[in-house]
Simulated scan of single mutants.
Amino acid sequence: MTIYRHQRNYGCRIHDQYTYLGMRVLVLENEKVRISLLPDKGTEIFEFLYKPVDLDFMWLTENGVHNPNSYLPTSPDPISTFIDYYAGGWQEVFPNGGSTSSYLGARFGQHGEVAHMPWDVEVLEDSADRIRVLFRVRTKKVPFELRKTLTLQSDSSTLRIEEELENLSDLPLRFMWGHHIAFGKPFLEPGCRINLPEGLTVLTEERSLQAINLGRVRRGDVHEWPVAADEQGAAVDLSILPARDARSDIVYVTGFEKSRAWYEVENGRRGMGIRVEWDASRLPYLWYWQEFGETKTYPWYGRHYNVGLEPFSGYPTHGIEKALENESAGSIGPSQTISSWLTAAPYPLNEK
Results as ranks from 00 to 15, higher is better:
Glu31Asp: 15
Asn195Cys: 12
His116Lys: 14
Trp300Asn: 03
Arg174Trp: 09
Leu146Glu: 05
His223Lys: 02
Leu241Glu: 01
Glu224Cys: 07
Ser70Trp: 06
Lys185Glu: 15
Gly184Trp: 03
Asn213Pro: 03
Asp279Ile: 11
Pro78Asp: 00
Glu113Gly: 06
Glu122Met: 15
Ser340Lys: 11
Pro334Met: 01
Gly97Lys: 03
Ser331Ala: 14
Trp262Met: 01
Leu324Val: 14
Asn326Glu: 02
Asp54Lys: 12
Lys32Ile: 15
Thr2Arg: 12
Glu310Asp: 03
Ala228His: 11
Pro118Cys: 10
Asp245Tyr: 10
Val25Cys: 07
Arg13Leu: 00
Ser36Lys: 14
Ser102Tyr: 02
Trp59Ala: 14
Leu286Met: 11
Pro311Gln: 01
Asp56Val: 04
Gly112Ile: 02
Gly233His: 10
Val137Asp: 01
Ile131His: 06
Ile45Trp: 13
Glu162Met: 12
Ser101Pro: 02
Ile240Glu: 01
Ser75Ala: 13
Tyr252Cys: 14
Glu122Asn: 13
Thr19Val: 07
Val121Trp: 05
Glu163Gln: 15
Thr201Leu: 13
His116Thr: 10
Thr43Met: 09
Val121Asn: 09
Gly178Pro: 02
Gly255Glu: 07
Ser331Gln: 10
Arg174Ser: 15
Glu351Val: 07
Glu310Phe: 02
Tyr103Ile: 04
Thr254Ile: 01
Leu349Thr: 05
Glu162Gly: 11
Gly109Asn: 00
Tyr18Gln: 15
Gln336Thr: 05
Thr295Gln: 09
Val236Ser: 04
Gly112Trp: 00
Glu145Arg: 12
Asp170Pro: 00
Arg24Pro: 02
Thr204Cys: 15
Val253His: 10
Arg303His: 14
Leu37Ser: 09
Glu122Leu: 13
Ile320Asn: 05
Ser169Asp: 06
Trp300Phe: 12
Asp84Gly: 03
Glu231Phe: 09
Pro118Gln: 11
Asp54Trp: 06
His111Gly: 01
His179Pro: 05
Thr81Cys: 05
Tyr50Ser: 03
Ala211Leu: 14
Lys258Thr: 14
Asp237Thr: 04
Pro39Ala: 06
Phe108Cys: 01
His179Gly: 08
Glu166Ala: 12
Asn306Arg: 06
Glu231Gly: 04
His318Val: 07
Ser99Tyr: 09
Arg160Asn: 10
Leu134Trp: 08
Leu173Met: 04
Tyr288Ala: 14
Ala234Tyr: 12
Glu351Asn: 15
Glu321Lys: 02
His15Thr: 06
Trp225Val: 05
Met117Asn: 11
Trp59His: 11
Asp40Gly: 13
Thr139Met: 02
Gly112Tyr: 03
Gln153Asp: 13
Tyr86Gly: 00
Val217Ile: 15
His179Trp: 12
Met1His: 10
Trp90Pro: 04
Leu38Ile: 10
Trp289Thr: 04
Tyr10Val: 10
Glu310Leu: 00
Glu224Phe: 11
Tyr20Met: 13
Glu125Val: 01
Leu309Thr: 02
Ser154Cys: 02
Ser36Phe: 09
Asn267Lys: 03
Leu171Pro: 08
Val253Cys: 09
Gly22Ala: 03
Trp59Thr: 10
Gln153Leu: 15
Leu324His: 01
Gly64Thr: 01
Glu257Pro: 11
Gly109Trp: 02
Val27Glu: 09
Asp249Tyr: 03
